[in-house]
Simulated scan of single mutants.
Amino acid sequence: MRLALFDFDGTLSTRDSLMPFLRHTCGTLRFLGGLVWMAPVLGAYAAGWMPNDRAKARVLGHFLGGRTLAQVQQAGAVFARTALPGLLRASTVARLREHQARGDCCVLVSASLDVYLEPWAAAQGFDAVLCSCLVTTAEGRVTGALAGANCFGPEKARRITDWLAGRHPDHITAYGDSRGDDEMLAMADTPVRL
């Protein structure tokens, strides 16, 4: 088996997808008001004073907390179908198609959310998706917390290693664009940094 690992934000897409998803889900006015409210958190993250997983949970809790998982999944499916195509990087999507045409196993590995990446990846023919997932209450309401660690940096490598259990690829190619992809790229025979 030949394996191709793809990051999403900045690699398969031209930019971050989380903020556009939150805007899509909440509406522009609520999203903009939320950005003002979350400015201290976003500023602390940008300055390096707050780790990305903690900042992300606070932002997700603010924008999605209290909604049912079904509502967020429905918004994610619509976002995947209508908005994600406009964010894609054509050159990396072409690389994905080349791997698929050769019969390589293609896995999406991203810190972005399953609620929109899973439907998008299924439509694109990925073999697996390793990404961040939302925690819900017993009543099925989103809390903002992530199930397990944010799929970023060392967590990407851990999830890939877990997924590989019993699989022995002959060759691994990995595509990434940021420091959050370093550990994944280090696992590859052919690392491609965009």
Rank of each mutant, 00 (worst) to 15 (best):
Phe31Asp: 12
Arg58Lys: 13
Leu69Glu: 12
Asp53Trp: 04
Ser91Pro: 03
Pro51Ile: 03
Met50Tyr: 03
Val109Met: 06
Gln73Trp: 03
Ala39His: 01
Arg89Tyr: 12
Leu35Asp: 07
Thr82Ser: 14
Ala90Met: 07
Trp49Val: 02
Ala75Ile: 03
Val72Tyr: 06
Gln73Ala: 13
Gln71Ala: 15
Gly48Tyr: 11
His99Trp: 10
Ala55Met: 02
Arg102Asn: 09
Ala83Arg: 15
Glu98His: 07
His99Lys: 09
Arg81His: 13
Gly65Ile: 05
Tyr45Ala: 15
Arg97Asp: 14
Gln73Arg: 15
Leu60Ala: 07
Ala75Gln: 13
Ala75Pro: 00
Gly34Trp: 01
Gln73Ile: 01
Thr82Ile: 02
Leu32Thr: 08
Phe79Tyr: 15
Leu87Arg: 07
Leu29Asn: 04
Tyr116Trp: 05
Gly65Asn: 05
Ala90Asp: 14
Ala77Phe: 01
Gln71Trp: 02
Pro85Gln: 10
Cys106Asp: 04
Ala94Ile: 00
Leu42Ala: 13
Arg95Cys: 13
His99Ser: 11
Val93Ile: 13
Met38Arg: 01
Arg54Ala: 14
Leu32Trp: 09
Gly86Val: 02
Asp104Trp: 08
Thr68Tyr: 04
Ala75Leu: 04
Gly43Pro: 00
Tyr116Arg: 08
Pro85Phe: 07
Val72Glu: 04
Ala77Asn: 04
Val115Cys: 15
Leu108Asn: 08
Thr82Gly: 06
Arg67His: 12
Gly33Ile: 00
Arg30Pro: 00
Phe31Met: 11
Ser91Glu: 15
Leu96Met: 10
Asn52Tyr: 03
Arg30Asp: 14
Trp37Lys: 13
Ala94Asp: 15
Leu29Val: 10
Pro85Ile: 06
Thr92Gly: 04
Pro85Met: 09
Gln71Asp: 08
Gly43Ile: 02
Ala80Thr: 04
Gly76Asn: 05
Pro40Asp: 11
Ala39Phe: 06
Asp104Gly: 08
Asn52Thr: 04
Met50His: 01
Gly66Met: 03
Ala47Ser: 07
Arg97Phe: 03
Ala57Asn: 05
Leu60Phe: 12
Leu35Gln: 11
Leu117Lys: 12
Leu108Gly: 09
Leu113Phe: 05
Ala44Tyr: 00
Leu42Ile: 11
Ser112Trp: 00
Asp53Val: 07
Arg54Leu: 09
Pro40Asn: 08
Lys56Gly: 03
His62Gln: 10
Leu117Ile: 11
Gln73Ser: 12
Phe79His: 07
Thr92Ser: 11
Leu87Glu: 12
Cys105Phe: 05
Leu108Asp: 07
Asp114Ile: 06
Ala47Leu: 15
Gly65Pro: 00
Ala47Thr: 00
Leu64Gly: 07
Asp53Leu: 01
Ala55Leu: 02
Pro51Gly: 12
Arg81Tyr: 05
Ala101Met: 07
Thr82Arg: 14
Leu64Trp: 03
Leu69Cys: 07
Arg89Cys: 09
Arg54Ser: 09
Gly34Val: 00
Leu64Asp: 05
Ala70Thr: 05
Arg95Thr: 06
Val72Ser: 10
Leu32Arg: 06
Gly86Lys: 06
Arg30Cys: 06
Glu98Asn: 05
Ala90Ile: 01
Leu64Ala: 08
Val107Asp: 04
Gln74Asn: 10
Gln71Asn: 04
Thr92Glu: 14
Val59Ser: 12
Gly65Ala: 06
Phe63Glu: 07
Gln74Phe: 05
Val78Pro: 00
Ala57Phe: 01
Leu84Trp: 01
Val72Gln: 08
Ala83Asp: 13
Leu29Ser: 10
Gln100Leu: 10
Ala39Ile: 00
Leu87Val: 02
